[in-house]
Simulated scan of single mutants.
Amino acid sequence: MMLKNPMWIAAALLSAVLTTPAMAHPEAAHVAAEGAWARASVAGQQATGAFVRLTAKEPLRLVGVRTPAAAVGEIHEMKMEGDVMRMRALDGLDLPAGQTVELKPGGLHLMFQQLKAPLQEGTQVPVTLVFQDAQGAESRLHLKVPVQRMAPKGGEAAGHGGHAMPAGGHQH
């Protein structure tokens, strides 16, 4: 009988371990995520941002972001260079142990590009953050991120505006 085959049992157990979401085991990523939200988008909009406060228990590096809502997920930095606001993708973001790193509008943030459908206010989008430790071992944190038009109260620093969108990012 197939159930008595030790290889089949081992494969089933390994599959269960590898597919268990980090939310069920938050210690797997050694990161606390607070205040996560994604900016709602409209039909035809190809990109939007997501924001969160991350606090690592040990030094980690955020090296990836994935969501089924978009073909591309990236870590972005937005900053002034002279009098021009520039946005660029980063290959990673260091998270020092015990220090909160805030990804927020107008600064460091997550960018979802080539949206598969508009992100509708009041829904949630699954997001997986990928981290590496000093030895290069990867861990993941799976989040359900609420979609909102604006930052939650107290979730956006004073003086920071909305997330800049390329042409076509506004409703016509």
Results as ranks from 00 to 15, higher is better:
64 G>Y: 06
132 Q>S: 12
55 T>H: 07
117 A>G: 04
116 K>F: 00
89 A>S: 15
100 T>R: 10
100 T>D: 05
63 V>N: 08
79 K>H: 02
137 A>D: 15
86 R>A: 11
85 M>S: 09
56 A>W: 04
71 A>W: 05
72 V>M: 09
54 L>Q: 05
108 L>I: 11
48 T>V: 07
106 G>Q: 05
100 T>Y: 09
64 G>T: 03
63 V>Y: 05
44 G>P: 12
79 K>A: 15
86 R>D: 00
42 V>S: 12
64 G>M: 10
97 A>K: 06
136 G>T: 02
129 L>K: 03
45 Q>H: 07
117 A>Y: 03
137 A>H: 15
50 A>D: 05
85 M>H: 02
135 Q>W: 07
135 Q>E: 14
115 L>R: 01
84 V>C: 07
56 A>K: 07
122 G>M: 13
41 S>C: 09
41 S>H: 11
87 M>K: 13
134 A>L: 12
136 G>W: 06
104 K>T: 09
64 G>C: 06
68 P>L: 04
61 R>Y: 05
108 L>M: 10
41 S>G: 13
73 G>T: 02
130 V>D: 10
117 A>W: 00
55 T>W: 04
51 F>H: 11
51 F>I: 08
99 Q>V: 09
103 L>K: 01
67 T>H: 01
119 L>R: 13
97 A>Q: 05
130 V>Q: 08
113 Q>E: 15
113 Q>M: 15
118 P>S: 02
84 V>A: 14
118 P>V: 00
91 D>P: 15
83 D>K: 13
81 E>K: 11
56 A>M: 12
52 V>N: 05
58 E>F: 03
94 D>I: 00
103 L>T: 12
56 A>R: 02
74 E>T: 10
82 G>K: 08
70 A>D: 04
73 G>N: 03
48 T>E: 00
51 F>C: 11
116 K>P: 00
108 L>P: 02
74 E>Y: 00
92 G>M: 06
41 S>D: 03
123 T>S: 15
46 Q>I: 08
73 G>D: 00
136 G>Q: 08
87 M>D: 15
130 V>E: 13
57 K>A: 15
69 A>S: 10
127 V>S: 03
129 L>G: 06
116 K>W: 00
135 Q>G: 07
85 M>K: 03
48 T>I: 00
96 P>V: 08
83 D>S: 11
114 Q>V: 10
113 Q>A: 15
138 E>I: 01
53 R>T: 12
49 G>S: 04
112 F>P: 02
122 G>R: 14
121 E>L: 06
126 P>G: 08
79 K>C: 01
83 D>Q: 14
98 G>F: 01
111 M>F: 09
42 V>T: 14
139 S>N: 01
63 V>R: 14
105 P>V: 04
99 Q>Y: 00
65 V>I: 14
104 K>M: 08
76 H>D: 07
65 V>Y: 01
107 G>M: 01
66 R>V: 10
50 A>K: 11
101 V>K: 05
69 A>F: 04
134 A>T: 13
136 G>E: 13
118 P>M: 01
64 G>H: 06
